[in-house]
């Protein structure tokens, strides 16, 4: 994720947000590339939702800026045609029908009313369109939120926890929809606590913890960024590699997983120290393992998009 390759990148530069003495977003910089799905991950209270709100002009930044297609969200001529956003999971009046919710948004954005029926069909909500939202299940509300985001057929989607409450069919539909969007060159940023789902969906990930980026890049590369090393002289090897800047996890009795230095450097360090290696191989990690490692999240600690 280094440079924009399409017409609608989201560029975040030195974004910082403070509430009193508390810095909730701390100098974030990354680019969400067109044509790719980017997963935005972090534990509870890590600053993801605040970052998304700043992207969409709902919260002001104390420092830094966010641009979509080179422009601040507030300066977009008709933002609904550029950015579709789902930022609050329950931003509906319970006494209003789903159809009327969308008709209100269509009115405000100048989108033809016929598009309302189309998008209700796209998210599988036509049958409940005239029911009051208060009677909707969580999954139906999520579908309505997604419909609102898709209403203007925007090339950019910013979705906060879109899979929350969806049944397996709904999750699959969502995944297909987002993959299709990125396949057409669209820009997709999705926060989710469903790490397995993100693993299936995301091309890139940005992981934040306590308001700071702890990992970012193509998911496939990040997942290959660890090395399994076996040796009879494990303790000494660990000291040598840690001195070289590596992060080490114990794998089993004679194996360790090494991160933060390249595989060839591990071999060179071991050779220089006269340590015999029995195995030196790339280690693919699951996103969950990586996430826990990046964020130092304890097993059982809740992970979600806060």
């Amino acid at each position: 994720m280094t440079s924009a390759t399409g017409s609608h990148p989201i560029v975040i530069e030195h974004l910082t947000k403070r509430y009193g003495e508390n810095t909730v977003v701390d100098d974030l910089s990354f680019t969400v590339q067109p044509g790719r799905v980017t997963g935005f991950l972090g534990p509870n209270g890590s600053g993801k939702s605040t970052t998304m709100k700043m992207m969409l002009g709902l919260a002001s930044a104390d420092r830094g800026r966010v641009t979509v297609s080179g422009r601040n969200y507030r300066d977009l001529d008709n933002p609904a045609h550029t950015v579709g956003a789902m930022i609050e999971s329950d931003a509906f009046h319970p006494g209003r029908s789903g159809r009327n919710h969308l008709r209100i948004l269509a009115d405000a954005t100048g989108i033809p009313q016929r598009r309302v029926a189309e998008v209700l069909g796209e998210v599988g909500l036509s049958h409940a369109a005239d029911r009051q939202v208060g009677a909707y299940s969580l999954g139906m509300r999520q579908r309505l939120g997604l419909a609102a985001a898709l209403l203007g057929e925007p090339p950019v989607l910013i979705l906060d926890e879109p899979g929350n409450g969806l049944d397996p069919e709904g999750i699959r539909t969502l995944r297909d929809r987002l993959r299709a969007q990125s396949g057409r060159g669209g820009t997709v940023l999705v926060s989710s606590h469903l790490l397995a789902e993100v693993e299936h969906l995301a091309d890139d990930v940005v992981v934040i913890n306590e308001g700071r980026i702890v990992a970012q890049g193509p998911l496939a590369e990040l997942q290959q960024a660890a090395t399994l090393v076996r040796t009879d002289n494990r303790d000494r090897l660990c000291r040598v590699l840690e001195d070289a800047g590596a992060t080490i996890e114990h794998h089993d009795s004679d194996g360790v997983v090494v991160r933060d230095i390249q595989i060839d450097e591990i071999g060179e360090q071991a050779f220089a120290a006269g340590i015999v290696l029995h195995e030196l191989s790339p280690q693919a990690g699951s996103l969950e393992e990586l996430f826990l490692n990046w964020t130092n999240t304890r097993i059982g600690q809740e992970v979600d998009a806060s």
Binding site: L56, G57, L58, Y73, R74, L76, P79, A80, V83, A85, I87, E88, D90, A91, F92, H93, P94, L105, A108, T109, A148
Partner: peptide, 22 residues
């Protein structure tokens, strides 16, 4: 006030980020 209670102000300000107009 109900716009804030039900968070419907969020889609409103997404549709019209220049809040004065909205």
């Amino acid at each position: 006030a109900r716009e804030y209670g039900h968070h419907t102000v969020v889609p409103t300000f997404l549709a019209s980020p220049r809040r004065s107009r909205a």
